[in-house]
Amino acid sequence: MGKSFMSNQATVGHAIPVVMSRESQIARYARQRRWEEYRYVLYTLPLLIYLLTFYLYPVATMLVRSFQGPNGLTLEYFAQLFESPAYSRIFWETIKLSVVTTVWALLLAYPLAYCMAQASPTRTGVMMALVLVPFWTSVLVRSYAWMVLLGREGIVNQFLLRFALTEKPVELLYSRFAVYLAMVHILLPFMVLPLYSVMAAMDRNLIRAADGLGATPRRIFQHIVLPLSIPGIAAGCLLVFILALGFYITPALVGGPRDMTVSTLIGQQLEMYEWNFAAALAAILLGIALISFAVFDKAIGMDKLFKR
């Protein structure tokens, strides 16, 4: 009798922990799920801290400074820019420089990216290396290389003189032409890579299908390849344009006095301890970059770039 009671007890006693453990199991799953969400935040935490400290904080300080006059908030530094025709000219020239650089980079990169997407894997690899090798070289080195090439005694002029294509050395260096040449060269990979990634992802059968349905190569390009590569075009242009806006060393080295960019102007102002005005100039550059980005996002959509 006692024995059977004991065994009953044991069964009942067993049942309770089972029920409890199921509830705690649900709680444990919920905890686990929450932990998995937090884990991703945790992974990005080092980078977040780094960006907050060394990027966001200085940018915020700069923005604050651009509005901060001796007697509280002011727009006088921004006004200063628009009051002086010399300053606004530098702004327009910088934008023009960036636009022209972007257009040239696009015109040169598009056929290259198309070739890369069509070629065999080995050839694509070679072309990719050729695009990337200059990319790994410092901007300074590449700018000096252009100086060596374009100078009065440079290789290009030596060639022109040797073959009597010109009587005296051509002024290639310290010109807008030299700035375009060097900047397009330096920024080309930023155009090629997004274009290539979009074109490589394009289904080859689409081109075959269009061909089979009666489209000539020109119309295949017009109706299929071009529309489908728009996200790549937009991303490449955005990248090159925003980077070109902030170019400093290259225009300063290979450009003439009329090729002064906003970045150079900012540098000058800093040397003269005009911190607030420099901050206002930088804020406007940042504004232009953000606006172009917003236009891109609205027109094309950032998600298009990362589509699966």
């Binding site: 075959r208 089979g212 349905l213 489209a215 109706h223 299929i224």
Partner: peptide, 30 residues
């Protein structure tokens, strides 16, 4: 393009940026 043959691909190869109408109209437009 000059063989004038219809082709249906394994993955369909529909033009992703065109509507159903434009896809079907494509060979006629060409």
């Amino acid at each position: 393009r000059s063989r004038n043959l219809g082709m249906v691909f394994q993955n369909y190869a529909l033009f992703p940026h065109m509507s159903v109408f434009d896809n079907v109209a494509f060979p006629l437009k060409m």
